[in-house]
């Protein structure tokens, strides 16, 4: 059996004169969760549209479950589920009516109770779709996408606009699907979402993939940031040896930023130093680099290399 679920080679996609996707390539193995990360306008939805068979590539080729998603649509249509970034429902139908309608043309579908239970909408069966909250609509999106027990799920920004609890619920659901062997291609602009879910990921920017691989690969060399404010303290006063590999200290105004590959160790040193000297670390924060920081860096190094 073929172990590749999605294959993308030198994919281009234009809208008129504007090229939204400019030659990208990646592969997703069966049973894998792969994330496409990127800010708005990076070309994620355009890529997904091509893979889901909504639009042909204007260059390059894609294979989904071994088939051309447009030319051989009949072979793949019923094997994939799609959560679109933006798609409507029949607003006047209830949740139950919507699922029942979809079941009528979905082969081997889960039954209604089962699928609504799965996405946590059992209590909302009789509610009109127009009355659902954003998070509930997203869960109905997911319910319809998984209704036909798909081998492959496309999820376009499944948690954008959701509150933290709703986000965690959706993550849980996605994890369950992956545990059952479903292949998932997810797009997101949250680094933490990719971190939570993805085995491998690609970062897209302006129609290109700027970096690709496992999370460790992508974050490689980009350490955790420890930031705090210490008025009147010079960099030389900090308990850090200057020029240590895997750590860099920058000062702007009164704000320090320590980028480190060993956050736990360096934080312990910093905290015990502050304790000994009776200093208060104002606005202390420890965080991973944001997506923006990573691909601004990547883009910058690329420009230097070019």
């Amino acid at each position: 059996m073929n172990t590749t679920a999605i294959e993308v080679r030198d994919l281009h996609r234009k809208y008129g004169d504007f090229e939204a996707v400019r030659g990208i390539g990646f592969e997703v193995g069966r049973g894998e969760l792969y994330a496409l990360l990127g800010t708005n306008g990076a070309g994620k939805t355009t890529t997904l549209d091509v893979l889901a068979g909504y639009a042909p590539p204007t260059g390059g080729r894609v294979r989904v479950l071994g088939h051309d998603p447009i030319g051989e649509r009949a072979q793949v249509r019923h094997r994939m589920g799609i959560v679109l970034q933006e798609a409507g429902f029949y607003k006047d139908l209830t949740v139950a009516e919507t699922v029942d309608a979809w079941r009528r043309w979905t082969p081997h579908s889960l039954d209604r109770r089962e699928v609504l239970e799965r996405v946590g909408l059992s209590q909302r069966e009789r509610v009109r779709v127009s009355q659902l909250s954003g998070g509930e609509k997203r869960r109905l999106d997911l319910a319809l996408a998984v209704l036909g027990r798909p081998e492959l799920l496309f999820l376009d920004e499944p948690t954008t606009g959701l509150d933290p609890e709703a986000r965690r619920n959706v993550w849980e659901l996605i994890r369950e699907m992956v545990a059952e062997g479903t292949t998932v291609l997810l797009t997101t602009h949250y680094l933490d979402e990719a971190e939570q879910l993805a085995q491998r990921l690609a970062i897209m920017h302006a129609g290109r993939i700027v970096t690709e691989g496992t999370l460790a690969d992508v974050l490689g060399g980009r350490g955790t940031r420890v930031t705090f404010r210490l008025p009147g303290v010079l960099p030389g006063d900090l308990p850090y040896e200057p020029g240590t590999a895997g750590r860099s200290v920058t000062l702007s105004g009164e704000s320090y930023s320590v980028e480190t590959d060993r956050p736990q160790e360096d934080l312990r040193i910093l905290l015990s130093w502050a304790h000994r000297h009776g200093r208060e670390l104002d606005g202390l924060e420890v965080r991973r680099p944001t997506l923006e920081e990573i691909f601004l860096e990547v883009a910058a190094t690329e420009r230097v290399a070019a």
């Binding site: 909504y54 933006e86 798609a87 409507g88 429902f89 979809w102 043309w105 036909g148």
Partner: peptide
């Protein structure tokens, strides 16, 4: 259905467009 993007959802289901 087009303006409310129901078409996009329908076309992403197991339904052939001819149907």
């Amino acid at each position: 259905r087009r303006e409310e993007r129901v078409y996009k959802r329908l076309r992403g289901s197991a339904l052939p467009t001819s149907a």
